[in-house]
Design a binder for these strands. Structure first.
Length: 509
DNA sequence: ACATCGGTTGGGGTT
DNA sequence: AAACCCCAACCGATG
Protein backbone atom coordinates (compact mmCIF):
# COMPACT_ATOMS: atom_id res chain seq x y z
CA UNK A 1 0.00 0.00 0.00
CA UNK A 2 1.17 3.53 -0.83
CA UNK A 3 0.25 6.16 1.72
CA UNK A 4 0.61 9.84 2.47
CA UNK A 5 1.02 11.03 6.01
CA UNK A 6 -0.10 14.63 5.83
CA UNK A 7 1.66 16.81 8.43
CA UNK A 8 -0.16 20.00 9.46
CA UNK A 9 0.08 20.24 13.21
CA UNK A 10 1.54 17.15 14.95
CA UNK A 11 5.01 17.99 13.62
CA UNK A 12 6.43 14.96 15.40
CA UNK A 13 7.06 11.25 15.11
CA UNK A 14 6.32 10.22 18.71
CA UNK A 15 2.75 9.56 19.84
CA UNK A 16 1.25 10.27 16.46
CA UNK A 17 -1.53 7.67 16.08
CA UNK A 18 -2.47 8.40 12.48
CA UNK A 19 1.20 8.26 11.46
CA UNK A 20 1.80 5.01 13.35
CA UNK A 21 -1.19 3.33 11.76
CA UNK A 22 -0.19 4.51 8.30
CA UNK A 23 3.37 3.24 8.76
CA UNK A 24 2.04 -0.12 9.83
CA UNK A 25 -0.29 -0.44 6.84
CA UNK A 26 1.99 0.82 4.10
CA UNK A 27 4.96 -0.43 2.14
CA UNK A 28 5.63 3.06 0.83
CA UNK A 29 4.90 6.20 2.81
CA UNK A 30 5.20 9.83 1.72
CA UNK A 31 5.67 12.25 4.65
CA UNK A 32 4.06 15.37 3.24
CA UNK A 33 3.81 18.96 4.34
CA UNK A 34 1.84 21.35 2.17
CA UNK A 35 2.94 24.97 2.17
CA UNK A 36 -0.32 26.69 1.34
CA UNK A 37 0.08 30.32 0.25
CA UNK A 38 -3.61 30.96 0.95
CA UNK A 39 -2.95 30.40 4.65
CA UNK A 40 -2.06 34.09 4.84
CA UNK A 41 -5.67 35.03 4.24
CA UNK A 42 -6.78 32.99 7.26
CA UNK A 43 -4.13 33.84 9.77
CA UNK A 44 -1.43 36.44 10.18
CA UNK A 45 1.84 34.80 11.14
CA UNK A 46 4.67 36.99 12.42
CA UNK A 47 8.35 36.44 11.67
CA UNK A 48 9.10 34.59 14.89
CA UNK A 49 6.39 31.99 14.33
CA UNK A 50 7.41 31.45 10.69
CA UNK A 51 10.90 30.78 11.99
CA UNK A 52 9.53 28.34 14.56
CA UNK A 53 7.66 26.49 11.81
CA UNK A 54 10.72 26.34 9.56
CA UNK A 55 12.83 24.99 12.40
CA UNK A 56 10.18 22.41 13.25
CA UNK A 57 10.07 21.21 9.64
CA UNK A 58 13.87 21.02 9.53
CA UNK A 59 13.90 18.90 12.67
CA UNK A 60 11.18 16.64 11.32
CA UNK A 61 13.14 16.20 8.10
CA UNK A 62 16.33 15.34 10.02
CA UNK A 63 14.51 12.67 12.02
CA UNK A 64 12.84 11.22 8.94
CA UNK A 65 16.15 11.04 7.11
CA UNK A 66 17.57 8.94 9.93
CA UNK A 67 14.84 6.46 8.99
CA UNK A 68 15.78 6.71 5.29
CA UNK A 69 12.79 8.92 4.61
CA UNK A 70 12.49 12.68 4.26
CA UNK A 71 9.96 15.44 4.59
CA UNK A 72 8.36 16.38 1.29
CA UNK A 73 7.28 20.01 1.21
CA UNK A 74 5.05 20.95 -1.68
CA UNK A 75 3.71 24.41 -2.49
CA UNK A 76 0.04 24.88 -3.31
CA UNK A 77 -3.43 24.38 -1.92
CA UNK A 78 -4.27 20.91 -0.60
CA UNK A 79 -7.38 20.43 -2.73
CA UNK A 80 -5.45 21.17 -5.93
CA UNK A 81 -2.40 19.12 -5.02
CA UNK A 82 -3.87 15.98 -3.52
CA UNK A 83 -5.50 14.55 -6.68
CA UNK A 84 -2.23 15.03 -8.58
CA UNK A 85 -0.14 13.42 -5.84
CA UNK A 86 -2.57 10.53 -5.47
CA UNK A 87 -2.19 9.86 -9.16
CA UNK A 88 1.56 10.42 -9.37
CA UNK A 89 2.45 8.34 -6.30
CA UNK A 90 -0.29 5.71 -6.74
CA UNK A 91 -1.67 6.55 -3.33
CA UNK A 92 -4.38 4.44 -1.71
CA UNK A 93 -4.19 5.77 1.83
CA UNK A 94 -4.08 9.24 3.39
CA UNK A 95 -3.53 9.70 7.11
CA UNK A 96 -3.70 12.89 9.13
CA UNK A 97 -4.41 14.25 12.57
CA UNK A 98 -7.89 15.63 13.20
CA UNK A 99 -8.11 19.40 13.47
CA UNK A 100 -11.12 21.18 14.95
CA UNK A 101 -10.46 24.70 13.69
CA UNK A 102 -13.14 25.95 11.28
CA UNK A 103 -10.79 26.63 8.37
CA UNK A 104 -9.18 23.22 8.88
CA UNK A 105 -12.54 21.45 8.91
CA UNK A 106 -13.37 22.99 5.55
CA UNK A 107 -9.94 22.11 4.13
CA UNK A 108 -10.16 18.54 5.37
CA UNK A 109 -13.69 17.99 4.11
CA UNK A 110 -12.47 18.83 0.63
CA UNK A 111 -9.67 16.28 0.93
CA UNK A 112 -12.03 13.64 2.34
CA UNK A 113 -14.31 14.11 -0.66
CA UNK A 114 -11.41 13.72 -3.05
CA UNK A 115 -10.24 10.61 -1.20
CA UNK A 116 -13.68 9.06 -1.21
CA UNK A 117 -14.13 9.75 -4.91
CA UNK A 118 -10.75 8.19 -5.75
CA UNK A 119 -11.31 5.26 -3.38
CA UNK A 120 -8.42 6.28 -1.18
CA UNK A 121 -8.61 5.05 2.41
CA UNK A 122 -8.54 7.70 5.16
CA UNK A 123 -7.03 7.46 8.63
CA UNK A 124 -7.97 10.39 10.87
CA UNK A 125 -7.07 10.39 14.56
CA UNK A 126 -7.49 12.78 17.47
CA UNK A 127 -4.11 13.56 19.00
CA UNK A 128 -3.79 17.32 19.23
CA UNK A 129 -5.88 17.12 22.39
CA UNK A 130 -6.24 14.47 25.11
CA UNK A 131 -9.95 14.17 24.45
CA UNK A 132 -12.20 14.31 21.44
CA UNK A 133 -14.51 17.33 21.96
CA UNK A 134 -17.46 15.27 20.75
CA UNK A 135 -16.82 12.70 23.48
CA UNK A 136 -16.89 15.49 26.02
CA UNK A 137 -20.21 16.69 24.66
CA UNK A 138 -21.64 13.18 24.85
CA UNK A 139 -20.59 12.82 28.48
CA UNK A 140 -21.68 16.25 29.63
CA UNK A 141 -24.74 16.22 31.85
CA UNK A 142 -26.00 19.56 30.58
CA UNK A 143 -26.09 18.51 26.90
CA UNK A 144 -23.67 21.33 26.16
CA UNK A 145 -19.96 21.73 26.73
CA UNK A 146 -19.32 22.67 30.35
CA UNK A 147 -18.77 26.42 30.69
CA UNK A 148 -16.96 26.08 33.98
CA UNK A 149 -13.71 24.33 34.70
CA UNK A 150 -15.17 22.38 37.61
CA UNK A 151 -18.06 21.20 35.47
CA UNK A 152 -15.53 20.21 32.84
CA UNK A 153 -13.58 18.14 35.39
CA UNK A 154 -16.80 16.43 36.45
CA UNK A 155 -17.45 15.47 32.84
CA UNK A 156 -13.90 14.16 32.41
CA UNK A 157 -14.23 12.05 35.55
CA UNK A 158 -17.00 10.10 33.83
CA UNK A 159 -14.88 9.39 30.79
CA UNK A 160 -12.48 6.62 31.63
CA UNK A 161 -8.70 6.75 31.52
CA UNK A 162 -6.49 7.74 28.62
CA UNK A 163 -4.35 5.26 26.76
CA UNK A 164 -0.61 5.86 27.06
CA UNK A 165 1.39 7.67 24.35
CA UNK A 166 2.78 5.75 21.39
CA UNK A 167 6.49 5.42 20.66
CA UNK A 168 8.12 6.58 17.42
CA UNK A 169 7.01 3.99 14.84
CA UNK A 170 9.39 1.51 13.24
CA UNK A 171 9.94 2.71 9.67
CA UNK A 172 12.42 -0.02 8.70
CA UNK A 173 10.10 -1.94 6.34
CA UNK A 174 9.29 1.12 4.21
CA UNK A 175 10.59 1.39 0.65
CA UNK A 176 12.74 4.37 -0.34
CA UNK A 177 10.82 7.28 -1.86
CA UNK A 178 13.58 9.28 -3.56
CA UNK A 179 12.86 7.81 -7.01
CA UNK A 180 9.34 9.28 -6.91
CA UNK A 181 10.67 12.74 -6.20
CA UNK A 182 12.66 13.39 -9.36
CA UNK A 183 11.67 16.72 -10.92
CA UNK A 184 9.46 17.43 -7.91
CA UNK A 185 10.31 20.71 -6.15
CA UNK A 186 9.88 19.61 -2.55
CA UNK A 187 12.64 21.20 -0.52
CA UNK A 188 12.16 22.66 2.94
CA UNK A 189 11.11 26.31 2.98
CA UNK A 190 13.57 28.99 3.99
CA UNK A 191 12.78 32.26 5.74
CA UNK A 192 13.73 34.11 2.56
CA UNK A 193 11.17 32.14 0.58
CA UNK A 194 8.53 33.10 3.14
CA UNK A 195 9.46 36.75 2.78
CA UNK A 196 11.00 37.02 6.24
CA UNK A 197 14.26 38.83 6.91
CA UNK A 198 16.37 37.51 9.73
CA UNK A 199 16.37 41.06 11.15
CA UNK A 200 12.58 40.89 11.66
CA UNK A 201 13.02 38.00 14.06
CA UNK A 202 13.90 38.47 17.70
CA UNK A 203 16.41 36.42 19.66
CA UNK A 204 15.68 32.72 19.24
CA UNK A 205 14.85 31.76 22.80
CA UNK A 206 12.57 28.85 21.91
CA UNK A 207 13.75 27.01 18.80
CA UNK A 208 11.13 24.92 17.04
CA UNK A 209 11.08 21.17 16.60
CA UNK A 210 10.31 17.84 18.21
CA UNK A 211 13.88 17.31 19.43
CA UNK A 212 13.88 20.67 21.18
CA UNK A 213 10.40 19.98 22.58
CA UNK A 214 11.41 16.71 24.22
CA UNK A 215 14.60 18.27 25.50
CA UNK A 216 12.73 21.19 26.99
CA UNK A 217 10.15 18.93 28.58
CA UNK A 218 12.80 16.72 30.17
CA UNK A 219 14.78 19.69 31.44
CA UNK A 220 11.81 21.63 32.78
CA UNK A 221 10.26 18.66 34.52
CA UNK A 222 13.52 17.25 35.90
CA UNK A 223 12.94 19.13 39.16
CA UNK A 224 10.17 16.94 40.54
CA UNK A 225 9.65 19.11 43.61
CA UNK A 226 8.94 22.06 41.36
CA UNK A 227 6.49 19.99 39.31
CA UNK A 228 4.41 18.71 42.22
CA UNK A 229 4.27 22.09 43.94
CA UNK A 230 3.47 24.06 40.78
CA UNK A 231 0.60 26.49 41.27
CA UNK A 232 -0.07 28.77 38.33
CA UNK A 233 -1.35 31.79 40.31
CA UNK A 234 1.91 31.78 42.27
CA UNK A 235 4.10 32.02 39.19
CA UNK A 236 5.37 35.39 38.09
CA UNK A 237 4.21 37.20 34.95
CA UNK A 238 7.25 39.46 34.92
CA UNK A 239 10.27 37.44 35.92
CA UNK A 240 13.34 37.81 33.71
CA UNK A 241 13.39 34.09 33.05
CA UNK A 242 10.05 32.36 32.35
CA UNK A 243 8.44 31.07 35.54
CA UNK A 244 6.42 28.45 33.66
CA UNK A 245 7.42 25.67 31.25
CA UNK A 246 7.07 27.47 27.87
CA UNK A 247 6.01 24.19 26.32
CA UNK A 248 3.01 25.94 24.75
CA UNK A 249 4.63 26.64 21.35
CA UNK A 250 5.60 22.97 21.10
CA UNK A 251 2.07 21.89 21.97
CA UNK A 252 0.62 24.33 19.46
CA UNK A 253 2.60 22.89 16.55
CA UNK A 254 2.37 19.38 17.97
CA UNK A 255 6.15 19.09 18.29
CA UNK A 256 5.23 17.70 21.68
CA UNK A 257 2.33 15.35 22.24
CA UNK A 258 0.02 16.61 24.97
CA UNK A 259 -0.55 12.99 25.91
CA UNK A 260 3.16 12.36 26.34
CA UNK A 261 3.35 15.43 28.57
CA UNK A 262 0.26 14.37 30.50
CA UNK A 263 1.62 10.90 31.22
CA UNK A 264 5.01 12.30 32.17
CA UNK A 265 3.37 14.65 34.67
CA UNK A 266 1.19 11.86 36.06
CA UNK A 267 4.24 9.67 36.51
CA UNK A 268 6.04 12.39 38.47
CA UNK A 269 2.93 13.07 40.56
CA UNK A 270 2.53 9.38 41.38
CA UNK A 271 5.92 9.40 43.12
CA UNK A 272 4.90 12.18 45.44
CA UNK A 273 2.68 11.94 48.49
CA UNK A 274 1.18 15.37 47.95
CA UNK A 275 0.96 17.50 44.86
CA UNK A 276 -1.02 20.50 43.69
CA UNK A 277 -4.27 19.82 41.82
CA UNK A 278 -6.18 21.23 38.87
CA UNK A 279 -6.89 24.00 38.09
CA UNK A 280 -3.56 25.31 39.38
CA UNK A 281 -1.28 22.28 38.81
CA UNK A 282 0.62 21.54 35.61
CA UNK A 283 -1.88 18.80 34.72
CA UNK A 284 -4.49 21.46 35.41
CA UNK A 285 -2.88 23.66 32.74
CA UNK A 286 -3.20 20.88 30.18
CA UNK A 287 -6.84 20.49 31.13
CA UNK A 288 -7.46 24.21 30.61
CA UNK A 289 -6.23 23.60 27.11
CA UNK A 290 -8.76 20.78 26.76
CA UNK A 291 -11.48 22.99 28.22
CA UNK A 292 -11.00 25.72 25.62
CA UNK A 293 -10.52 23.27 22.77
CA UNK A 294 -13.80 21.53 23.53
CA UNK A 295 -15.71 24.79 23.81
CA UNK A 296 -14.09 26.17 20.66
CA UNK A 297 -14.91 23.06 18.65
CA UNK A 298 -18.56 23.10 19.64
CA UNK A 299 -19.37 26.82 19.56
CA UNK A 300 -20.12 28.51 16.23
CA UNK A 301 -18.17 31.69 15.49
CA UNK A 302 -16.04 31.10 18.57
CA UNK A 303 -13.47 33.71 17.53
CA UNK A 304 -16.05 36.42 16.91
CA UNK A 305 -18.55 38.37 18.96
CA UNK A 306 -21.40 38.52 16.43
CA UNK A 307 -23.01 35.15 15.88
CA UNK A 308 -21.27 33.60 18.87
CA UNK A 309 -24.02 32.28 21.16
CA UNK A 310 -21.90 32.32 24.32
CA UNK A 311 -20.44 35.78 23.80
CA UNK A 312 -21.78 38.92 25.47
CA UNK A 313 -22.62 41.49 22.82
CA UNK A 314 -20.77 44.66 23.73
CA UNK A 315 -20.37 47.93 21.84
CA UNK A 316 -16.61 48.26 21.84
CA UNK A 317 -14.97 51.43 20.53
CA UNK A 318 -12.96 51.79 17.35
CA UNK A 319 -9.76 53.62 18.16
CA UNK A 320 -6.90 52.81 15.83
CA UNK A 321 -4.46 55.11 17.58
CA UNK A 322 -5.00 53.45 20.94
CA UNK A 323 -4.92 50.00 19.39
CA UNK A 324 -1.63 50.81 17.68
CA UNK A 325 -0.17 52.24 20.88
CA UNK A 326 -1.13 49.04 22.71
CA UNK A 327 0.23 46.81 19.98
CA UNK A 328 3.55 48.64 19.83
CA UNK A 329 4.01 49.09 23.56
CA UNK A 330 3.43 52.86 23.70
CA UNK A 331 0.52 53.17 26.14
CA UNK A 332 2.58 55.07 28.69
CA UNK A 333 2.04 52.32 31.27
CA UNK A 334 5.48 50.70 31.60
CA UNK A 335 4.17 47.34 32.86
CA UNK A 336 1.80 47.02 29.89
CA UNK A 337 4.33 48.29 27.37
CA UNK A 338 7.13 46.02 28.61
CA UNK A 339 4.89 42.99 28.19
CA UNK A 340 3.86 44.02 24.68
CA UNK A 341 7.48 44.57 23.70
CA UNK A 342 8.41 41.15 25.08
CA UNK A 343 5.54 39.67 23.08
CA UNK A 344 6.65 41.29 19.85
CA UNK A 345 10.37 40.58 20.17
CA UNK A 346 10.36 37.15 21.82
CA UNK A 347 6.99 35.64 20.92
CA UNK A 348 6.09 34.43 24.37
CA UNK A 349 4.66 36.16 27.45
CA UNK A 350 3.46 34.65 30.71
CA UNK A 351 -0.20 33.76 31.03
CA UNK A 352 -0.87 36.38 33.70
CA UNK A 353 0.91 38.98 31.57
CA UNK A 354 -1.62 38.11 28.87
CA UNK A 355 -4.34 38.73 31.44
CA UNK A 356 -2.97 42.16 32.24
CA UNK A 357 -2.62 43.41 28.67
CA UNK A 358 -5.88 41.83 27.49
CA UNK A 359 -7.82 43.42 30.33
CA UNK A 360 -6.13 46.74 29.58
CA UNK A 361 -7.11 46.65 25.90
CA UNK A 362 -10.73 45.65 26.51
CA UNK A 363 -12.90 46.17 29.57
CA UNK A 364 -10.19 47.63 31.81
CA UNK A 365 -8.93 50.68 30.02
CA UNK A 366 -9.12 51.13 26.25
CA UNK A 367 -12.58 49.60 25.61
CA UNK A 368 -11.38 48.12 22.32
CA UNK A 369 -12.80 44.85 21.01
CA UNK A 370 -11.14 41.62 22.12
CA UNK A 371 -11.21 40.58 18.45
CA UNK A 372 -8.57 43.23 17.71
CA UNK A 373 -6.42 41.97 20.56
CA UNK A 374 -6.86 38.39 19.37
CA UNK A 375 -5.42 39.32 15.98
CA UNK A 376 -2.34 40.89 17.54
CA UNK A 377 -1.72 37.81 19.69
CA UNK A 378 -2.32 35.64 16.65
CA UNK A 379 0.44 37.45 14.82
CA UNK A 380 3.05 37.61 17.55
CA UNK A 381 2.63 34.56 19.77
CA UNK A 382 4.72 31.48 19.02
CA UNK A 383 1.98 29.47 20.70
CA UNK A 384 -0.96 31.19 18.97
CA UNK A 385 -3.51 28.40 18.90
CA UNK A 386 -6.90 29.38 17.48
CA UNK A 387 -9.07 27.77 20.14
CA UNK A 388 -6.98 28.83 23.10
CA UNK A 389 -6.40 32.35 21.86
CA UNK A 390 -10.10 33.01 21.26
CA UNK A 391 -11.11 31.26 24.51
CA UNK A 392 -8.77 33.35 26.59
CA UNK A 393 -9.82 36.61 24.94
CA UNK A 394 -13.46 35.74 25.61
CA UNK A 395 -12.48 35.08 29.20
CA UNK A 396 -10.40 38.19 29.82
CA UNK A 397 -12.86 40.57 28.19
CA UNK A 398 -15.61 39.05 30.37
CA UNK A 399 -17.48 38.16 27.20
CA UNK A 400 -17.83 34.48 28.13
CA UNK A 401 -16.74 31.99 30.83
CA UNK A 402 -15.65 34.74 33.21
CA UNK A 403 -18.12 37.35 34.37
CA UNK A 404 -16.66 39.16 37.38
CA UNK A 405 -16.01 42.19 35.23
CA UNK A 406 -15.52 44.40 38.28
CA UNK A 407 -12.21 42.66 38.87
CA UNK A 408 -9.95 44.90 36.82
CA UNK A 409 -6.21 44.44 36.71
CA UNK A 410 -4.31 47.52 37.69
CA UNK A 411 -1.61 48.31 35.12
CA UNK A 412 0.35 49.87 37.99
CA UNK A 413 0.06 47.66 41.05
CA UNK A 414 -0.38 44.20 39.50
CA UNK A 415 3.22 43.87 38.38
CA UNK A 416 4.68 45.28 41.61
CA UNK A 417 3.78 42.18 43.60
CA UNK A 418 6.23 39.94 41.73
CA UNK A 419 8.69 42.60 40.55
CA UNK A 420 8.80 45.48 43.05
CA UNK A 421 12.06 46.73 41.63
CA UNK A 422 10.76 46.93 38.06
CA UNK A 423 13.62 44.91 36.54
CA UNK A 424 11.29 43.48 33.91
CA UNK A 425 10.43 47.00 32.77
CA UNK A 426 14.10 48.00 32.73
CA UNK A 427 14.90 45.03 30.51
CA UNK A 428 12.28 45.65 27.85
CA UNK A 429 12.11 49.47 28.00
CA UNK A 430 15.74 50.54 28.38
CA UNK A 431 14.88 54.24 28.22
CA UNK A 432 13.20 53.84 31.64
CA UNK A 433 16.04 51.89 33.22
CA UNK A 434 17.38 54.74 35.35
CA UNK A 435 14.11 55.45 37.16
CA UNK A 436 14.13 54.51 40.85
CA UNK A 437 11.71 51.76 41.79
CA UNK A 438 9.42 54.35 43.41
CA UNK A 439 8.68 55.82 39.99
CA UNK A 440 9.24 53.07 37.47
CA UNK A 441 5.62 51.87 37.31
CA UNK A 442 4.32 55.48 37.11
CA UNK A 443 7.13 57.53 35.62
CA UNK A 444 4.81 60.41 34.70
CA UNK A 445 4.46 61.10 38.41
CA UNK A 446 8.19 61.55 38.86
CA UNK A 447 9.17 65.19 39.42
CA UNK A 448 10.75 66.95 36.45
CA UNK A 449 14.22 66.94 38.02
CA UNK A 450 14.02 63.16 38.52
CA UNK A 451 13.05 62.71 34.88
CA UNK A 452 15.98 64.91 33.88
CA UNK A 453 18.37 62.92 36.07
CA UNK A 454 17.06 59.73 34.51
CA UNK A 455 17.62 61.19 31.03
CA UNK A 456 14.04 60.40 30.16
CA UNK A 457 11.41 63.10 29.89
CA UNK A 458 7.90 61.71 30.00
CA UNK A 459 6.02 62.93 26.95
CA UNK A 460 9.28 63.24 25.00
CA UNK A 461 11.44 60.15 25.47
CA UNK A 462 8.62 57.89 26.73
CA UNK A 463 4.89 58.55 26.22
CA UNK A 464 2.50 59.95 28.79
CA UNK A 465 -0.31 57.54 29.71
CA UNK A 466 -2.80 57.47 26.83
CA UNK A 467 -5.67 57.18 29.33
CA UNK A 468 -6.04 57.80 33.04
CA UNK A 469 -6.58 54.33 34.48
CA UNK A 470 -8.69 55.31 37.49
CA UNK A 471 -10.97 57.49 35.35
CA UNK A 472 -11.56 55.06 32.51
CA UNK A 473 -11.86 52.09 34.86
CA UNK A 474 -14.93 53.65 36.49
CA UNK A 475 -16.46 54.63 33.16
CA UNK A 476 -15.86 51.15 31.75
CA UNK A 477 -17.35 49.42 34.80
CA UNK A 478 -20.62 51.24 34.26
CA UNK A 479 -20.50 50.50 30.51
CA UNK A 480 -19.99 46.87 31.37
CA UNK A 481 -22.94 46.83 33.78
CA UNK A 482 -25.09 48.36 31.06
CA UNK A 483 -23.91 45.88 28.43
CA UNK A 484 -24.64 42.95 30.74
CA UNK A 485 -28.12 44.28 31.47
CA UNK A 486 -28.79 44.63 27.74
CA UNK A 487 -27.62 41.08 27.07
CA UNK A 488 -29.87 39.77 29.81
CA UNK A 489 -32.89 41.58 28.41
CA UNK A 490 -32.05 40.29 24.92
CA UNK A 491 -31.83 36.70 26.11
CA UNK A 492 -35.21 36.92 27.83
CA UNK A 493 -36.78 38.25 24.65
CA UNK A 494 -35.22 35.33 22.83
CA UNK A 495 -36.44 32.76 25.34
CA UNK A 496 -40.01 33.96 25.48
CA UNK A 497 -40.23 35.31 21.96
CA UNK A 498 -41.91 38.32 23.47
CA UNK A 499 -40.93 41.56 25.10
CA UNK A 500 -43.49 40.90 27.83
CA UNK A 501 -41.78 39.27 30.76
CA UNK A 502 -43.05 37.43 33.75
CA UNK A 503 -43.10 39.59 36.90
CA UNK A 504 -40.44 37.45 38.56
CA UNK A 505 -37.98 37.84 35.73
CA UNK A 506 -38.80 41.51 35.53
CA UNK A 507 -37.93 41.90 39.18
CA UNK A 508 -34.56 40.30 38.61
CA UNK A 509 -33.71 42.91 36.04
C1' DA B 1 -43.96 5.39 46.30
C1' DC B 2 -41.54 7.26 42.61
C1' DA B 3 -39.79 10.08 38.75
C1' DT B 4 -39.85 14.35 36.69
C1' DC B 5 -40.45 19.13 36.42
C1' DG B 6 -39.70 24.20 37.29
C1' DG B 7 -37.91 27.32 40.32
C1' DT B 8 -34.97 29.04 44.17
C1' DT B 9 -30.70 29.20 46.84
C1' DG B 10 -26.01 29.44 48.00
C1' DG B 11 -21.31 28.51 47.07
C1' DG B 12 -17.73 29.25 44.06
C1' DG B 13 -15.13 31.11 40.42
C1' DT B 14 -6.90 30.20 37.64
C1' DT B 15 -5.50 37.53 40.44
C1' DA C 1 -19.09 46.52 50.73
C1' DA C 2 -20.76 44.63 46.49
C1' DA C 3 -21.05 44.14 41.91
C1' DC C 4 -21.23 39.08 37.68
C1' DC C 5 -22.93 34.21 36.09
C1' DC C 6 -22.96 29.09 36.52
C1' DC C 7 -24.43 25.03 38.49
C1' DA C 8 -25.32 21.54 41.88
C1' DA C 9 -28.35 20.81 45.49
C1' DC C 10 -32.49 21.39 47.21
C1' DC C 11 -37.59 22.18 47.39
C1' DG C 12 -42.37 21.62 46.51
C1' DA C 13 -45.77 20.54 42.99
C1' DT C 14 -47.39 17.39 39.79
C1' DG C 15 -48.44 13.12 37.25
Amino acid sequence: MNGIYWFRKALRLHDNPALSEAVEKCETLFPLFILDPSIRSFVKVGANRWRFLVQSLQDLDRSLREANLRLIVIRGTPKDLMPKLIDKWKINLIAYEMDTEPFAIKRDQEIDQIANKLKVELIKRVSHTLYDPNDILRNSASKSTPFTYQGFLTTLSKMGSLSPPLPVPDFSHLHPIEKYLKNEPCELPTLEELGIKESECGPCLFPGGETEAIKRMEQTLSDHKWVVSFAKPNTSPNSLKPSTTVLSPYLKFGCLSCRRLYFKLKEIESKSSKCTQPPVSLVGQLLWREFFYANAALTPNFDKMVGNPICKQIEWDKNDEHLKAWKEGRTGYPFIDAIMIQLKTEGWIHHLARHAVACFLTRGDLWISWEDGLKVFEEYLLDADWSLNAGNWLWLSASAFFHQYFRVYSPISFGKKTDPNGDFIRKYIPVLRRFPKEHIYEPWKAPKFVQQNCKCLIGVDYPKPIVDHETVRKINLSKMAKAYANNKAESIVEETGDVLMSPKKKKKI
